[in-house]
Simulated scan of single mutants.
Amino acid sequence: MKLLKGLWIGFWSGLILGLLLKWIQSVTGEQVYTLLLNVDFIPLIGDVQWSEITEFIFHLLISLIIGVVYVYLAKRRKYPFGQLVLISLFLSVPFPFLYFLLSWLAVEADVPAATDWGAFLYWLFGHLTYALLLPILYKTFERKNAVSQ
């Protein structure tokens, strides 16, 4: 059950993050969604012209893994909501730094520069939203299971 819950949480939080960054990119022109999906720097994978859907699936796969890890950590004991948020924020520590790394590693994709602070703030906002979705979805799933049992 932990695995399914983690996959569910990872899927929905990743989907919302992706859609949020796509919306931000469409409204502001900042290429944060493009940055999220970019894989052109990964050996072998980066040589292929993937469709947007396929690149989004790559993003979701990472989110599924994060969701499973999050549920594994959260299920270790009965944590209050505040501590679930802290666990999520701890897991999210690398996300701001990924902005700089992914911007720097991009080969051909039109992504924001590592020095584009506006784009960085959108990236940060999107990933903080993601981090808050993990405990919210976890608690939602817990309540759903309690009601159905």
Rank of each mutant, 00 (worst) to 15 (best):
K2Y: 12
G6H: 08
G6A: 11
W8N: 14
W8I: 13
I9F: 02
I9E: 02
I9A: 03
F11S: 06
F11K: 05
S13M: 14
I16C: 05
L20W: 14
K22L: 11
W23T: 14
I24Q: 08
Q25I: 00
T28M: 09
Y33V: 00
L36Y: 03
L37M: 01
I42A: 05
E52A: 04
T54P: 07
F58M: 08
H59I: 02
I62K: 15
I62Y: 15
L64T: 08
G67W: 03
V69K: 00
Y70E: 10
L73K: 06
A74V: 08
K75V: 09
R76T: 14
K78S: 13
L84F: 03
V85C: 04
L91W: 02
L91P: 01
V93F: 01
F97A: 13
L105P: 02
L105K: 13
A106L: 06
V107P: 06
E108L: 10
A109V: 13
D110Y: 07
P112Y: 10
A113D: 15
A114T: 12
W117Y: 09
G118I: 11
Y122M: 11
Y122C: 08
F125Y: 01
L128Y: 15
A131Y: 03
K139M: 06
F141L: 05
E142R: 05
R143L: 13
S148W: 10
Q149H: 10
